[in-house]
Structures are given as C-alpha cells and as structure tokens.
Design a protein around this nucleic acid. Structure first.
Length: 578
RNA sequence: GCGCCCGUAGCUCAGCGGAUAGAGCAGGGGACUUCUAAUCCCAAGGCCGCAGGUUCGAAUCCUGCCGGGCGCACCA
C-alpha cells in the first residue's frame, strides 16, 4: 500500500479501532481524507458511520477512537469536531523529515505494487489504408498514458494495436488497386486514403465490381499469393504512416505491438468450434450466434453476437471473443483493457459476458472497457472539418505545434532550433493534456484557446512552472543532496510539502479506475501551490539564511521531479527551458 | 420500445456518502528596481435539471420525471 499520510493514519486507526471498540476495519475503509477545512490537513469520517454499529453517539465513538489512537509522532493531538469528525494536523517536524526523505528517490515515494498483474492493453487501433484521424486520438493518448502508469506501478503490460487490416473493405480496395494497375513503388498513405474512397463508391455503384470484391475477399482469406502481396503492401505502407504519427505524438506503440484482425483470423474457426462444443451457440436467421443473457434488441428479442454470418463469413464479434481467448489463454493476461469509445459499451458488455460463459474469462481475470467520450468541436458537435470529413491527425498535430510555436515565440529567449523543440513539446503536450485532464468518460470540447492557455489546468502552466524551477536550480549550482534538512515555516512551504507527499495516493487512485485526469488535477494543484511558494519564498535572494535556502532548494527540486515524473506518466515532455 | 451516458458559477471543468460545493476563463480590484509576470494576491459569482426516497448526513446512492447525446442482427 502507498506510504502516504492518509494511509499511515489509516493503519494507526485500524489498531485503535481494534483495541478500543473491538471493530475490524480495513485500512482502506478508515475514511481518512485530505481536509478542505482551513488549518486541518486530514480528517477521518469514520466515527459517524460507526455510531450505529457500536450503539453509541458518534462524538463519543470519535473520542474513544482518539483516546486509543497512537499518532503522537505524526500529528498534533487529533481534535474531535462537529458531529464526530476527527481532525489531524501533521507535525511540521514529521512532514519536513518525510519530504527530506524523498530526495534521491527516483520513485518519489510511490511504491511498486507487491503483486504485479499482466495487462493486455488494447489501444489506438487505426485502420490500414486510412490516414489516422481525430477519431483515433483519444484511444491513442489515453491508452498510452495508462500503459505508462501501469508500467511505472510495476505491472507487466502487453500493449496491442488492434489494426483494422482484414475483411470486406480489403476485398474492394485490393480489387480497385488491380483495376487501376497499382504500382507498388510510389504510393503514400494519402493516396491510399483516396483509393479507399474511390473503391467504396465503386463498390456501391457497380454490382460487378462488388461481386469481384467479394471474390477478392475469399482470395485474401484463402491465402492467394498475389492478393496477399498487395495486401501486405497496404499494411506496410500504413504501418509506416502509423509510426510517423506515433513518433510525432510520442506514443510507445511499435510494429511489434500490432495484433491486427488478420492476426486473429486463423483462430476464428477454432473459437467458433470451441463455443459450439460448449453449447453456447445457436443458429439464427442462417447465422451462427451466441446470445449472452440480458441483452435485447429493438423488438425485445435476444441480442446476438454474430460469429458466422449468413453468407459464411465471420462476424466481427467473433474476433473480439478470439482476442479475449488469446490474451487470457495463450498469453496469460490477468487483466484485459480495451481503450475504445463509449458507443461500444454494450458491445463490450456482451463480449465480456459471453467470454465468462465460455470460460475465456475466469474469476481471476478482470476485463474493463476503458471507455471515452467524443471530441466535440467549438460548436458542440462531433469535431469535423468544414467539409464534414474527419480531421487528419497529422494536420491537427502540425497545427498544434504551429500554435505552440507562436506562443513560445512571444516569450522565449531560446534560439530558433531550441524553440522548435520546445514548441513541439508544448503543442503535443497541450493536445494530450487537454484530452487527459478531464474525465475520459465524458465528451470534451476541443478549443485551441483553452488548450494552449498559459493559465489554468493546462500543460503549458505545468511546463512553465517546471521551467521556473529548473531556472532556479541551474542558478543555484550544486543541489542539496539526500539528508538536507527541510524547514517548514511559511504556509506555502508547508502546503507544498503536503502536496509532494500526496503523489503515491494519487497514482493509486488513478490506476484504480484508469482515470488519468486525477493525476492532471494533482499536478495542477502542485504547480499552483509551487507558484504561490515562488511568490512568497525567495530561494536564492540575498539575505536568505543558507539553511532556509537549502531547504527551499529541496522543495523546488522535488516539485520539479514530481512534475516531470507526473507529466512523463501521461506522455508529456517537460522542457528545461521554455 | 429497450439499454447506456450526461445535466454543478455566464463559459470550460473538478468534486472520493461528510462540515460553509471547488478551480480556471470571462468580467471587477491590486502586485513587476525582486530566482522566467507564460505569474501571483483579493473580491464577486451557485434552488448542483426537477420531484420524491434511503441516511445522523446526499451534488454524490435509489425511484420517477424533464432536457441533451449515444447504442440496439450479419460493416468493423
């Protein structure tokens, strides 16, 4: 468990409850929270809820708990107030020592998990032969942040990129390429985009072409060499494009993480056989289906997962069942995370339900649809180009870096090359932070102004705060190392120390529900507290006592480390200078 | 029709069953001879969609309603 203050108080409470009231409570259920009350650091809300169980008035319960509670080393004598709140004020000495103890700790107090789990993490999932567009942004950014957080926490992560690289569309695409005499040498993803659209309209307008496309699908699936060769070229060209976008965005996915639909295709027949053996399938309207209980359609009839379509082809549902089966059975994943938009919620519920029935998921497995809302434009509607198309990711990111360059140029004293690097960190960081800083389950409004604002909960504010700190540290020369005493006299110093010690609890909370926005909120608070500290607590100014100076350097240094680590955990760079 | 999600300050958003619901922006007032003012400080701004219920205590949990969004069989 995290070694943060609330947890320590919680542990002490567990003992006090046992001895004083003969009550067993798990440390996590002791209801110790950071307090919003002025002059109070933490509060415990347990006495009220315990009152009925114990059969005594809540204040009485609180007093009894306090009498048995041993926190003398940690806090001032706890105070019982109101209906039965127990208020804690952390001792400055303890706080100072705890903060000083973080110096030199690369994990900044965050413990690695004692029981690592193996996460299969599905994110990004672009389509072959289509340029990545804004629709892929959230999955890519959120998924990558979760990956970084899980790895940092000490889990094993198996990222996989579920490429749309198989199925009917490729029949028509390849057929179209054959029609126009595809020359494999000189085409880019942009050409492919156009080909895709042309093939689509031809498919809709020309029944002969549609027939040939369907035949081409059969050839593709049966391994026809010429067809496969063309397909592979499409995949390769697309992969180059994805890697370019990932490079621009700073996303860790590589070609080795690609597990596209084609990868699962050879497993589909066996998966259906397996489901049939287990008696879970049922023929319906000529299709082979699984009907997980509790799902109905418009007419109130059971809703199927379609394994095999009437025409004999595979339904896309079976691929998802095959992924669950593959990652738990073949790869030993304990946890499956699917970073996919909210509209797919019902689909995943059904897939998970069927997977439990089939035994692909056991009681030891957790499968979570890490869902997210839609990106809205300034008009409040799904973001689109003026022509109504999807915004290309490369263009969006280029624009972000361009805007950032303007912002940087206004202030920066760096040279042009440095400024370009900073602009990239600021622009890409802004796009990511805007996405990650609000609850992923809700839709969010995409506006350049808000995204690149210097004030408020934005990446620029965090990067600026860090740059100010780095500037101080550079000017200070040698930094105070481990063992440097920390002195907390100013309120801002104290507030900063408390914040710095909160990191473990925050990381814990973030991973509990895959909620990166909580980390963003914490980083923003930390940067804001630092900014106040910066105003009221001079570090290097003449006349500052050397001990105070060193203490403040420790606080500044740790703040920078928290910001840099925190930003890194969500995939954002923190330049040394802006 | 069934199911899921959302409704908090003018705007964009936090809010973990707990005390007087918080930030930022915008609007008002102040602070640069001072480590990066890309900042800070102060004031103002709220029937937490509505109505019930559970609870010592509800923005938070439950039910109903209103408003908005999304999904619901062979495209993934």
């Amino acid at each position: 468990m995290a070694g943060d203050i609330a947890s320590i108080i919680g542990d002490r409470l567990v003992r006090a409850l046992r001895t004083a009231l003969d009550v067993e409570v798990a440390p996590a259920d002791t209801m110790v929270r950071p307090s919003t009350r002025a002059g109070v650091d933490y509060q415990c809300n347990l006495a009220m809820s315990l009152a009925k169980r114990v059969g005594r008035p809540p204040r009485d319960v609180a007093e009894t708990i306090v009498a048995a509670l041993d926190v003398d080393d940690l806090t001032a004598p706890p105070e019982v107030t109101g209906p039965g709140f127990i208020n804690f004020v952390v001792r400055d000495g303890w706080l100072a020592a705890a903060v000083a103890g973080l110096v030199g700790d690369p994990r900044l107090g965050v413990p690695a998990v004692t029981r690592p789990r193996r996460y299969a993490l599905d994110y990004s999932s672009p389509n072959v032969a289509k340029e990545m567009h804004v629709g892929h942004l959230r999955s890519t950014i959120i998924g990558d942040a979760i990956r970084r957080l899980l790895v940092f926490a000490g889990h094993e992560v198996l990222p996989h990129n579920h490429l749309g690289d198989w199925g009917t569309p490729f029949g028509m695409l390849i057929e179209h390429l054959v029609d126009i005499g595809w020359d494999d040498s000189a085409h880019t993803i942009t050409d492919l985009n156009g080909f895709y659209q042309a093939a689509r309209s031809k498919f809709d307008a020309d029944p002969g072409f549609a027939d040939r496309s369907r035949l081409r699908v059969v050839q593709l699936q049966s391994g026809d060499e010429r067809t496969l060769a063309l397909w592979r070229q499409l995949v390769d060209e697309s992969t180059r494009h994805f890697e370019e976008v990932y490079g621009l965005l700073g996303i860790g996915l590589t070609a080795a993480d690609i597990y596209g639909e084609s990868f699962y295709h050879p497993m589909l027949a066996d998966t259906i056989d397996d489901l049939e053996r287990k008696g879970l399938t049922r023929a319906s309207g000529g299709a082979v289906c699984v009907f997980p209980p509790g799902f109905t359609n418009r007419e109130g009839e059971p809703l199927p997962l379609i394994l095999r379509k009437r025409d004999g082809g595979y339904g896309y549902h079976v691929t998802d069942l095959a992924t669950v089966r593959y990652w738990t059975t073949e790869r030993g994943a304990t946890d499956l995370l699917y970073v996919v938009g909210t509209p797919q919620a019902q689909h995943f519920q059904m897939v998970f339900a069927a997977s439990r029935q089939a035994g692909y998921l056991t009681d030891d497995n957790r499968a979570v649809h890490v869902n997210f809302g839609t990106i809205l434009g300034e008009d409040g509607k799904t973001i689109r180009t003026r022509a109504g198309g999807s915004i290309k990711l490369v263009e969006l990111l280029t624009e972000a870096v361009g805007h950032a360059a303007d912002v940087v140029a206004e202030r920066s004293e760096l040279g042009p090359a440095e400024q370009a690097r900073v602009a990239r960190a600021v622009g890409i960081g802004a796009v990511k932070y805007a996405d990650l800083s609000s609850d992923r389950e809700k839709d969010y409004l995409f506006t350049w102004g808000k995204m690149l604002a210097r004030e408020g909960n934005t990446s620029v504010y965090l990067q600026y705060a860090n740059a100010r700190i780095r500037s101080i540290l550079r000017k200070a020369g040698e930094l105070p190392g481990p063992g440097t005493p920390v002195l907390l006299t100013e309120p801002a110093e104290r507030a900063l120390a408390l914040k710095l010690l909160d990191l473990p609890a925050v990381v814990d909370a973030v991973l509990e529900t895959y909620a990166p926005h909580r980390l963003c909120g914490y980083l923003y608070e930390t940067a804001a507290v630092f900014s106040s500290f910066y105003e009221t607590c001079p570090v290097l100014a003449a006349g500052v006592d050397p001990q105070v100076r060193d203490s403040r350097l420790v606080l500044a240094r740790l703040t920078s480390e928290v910001l840099v680590l925190g930003l890194d955990l969500i995939g954002i760079e923190a330049p040394e200078q802006l």
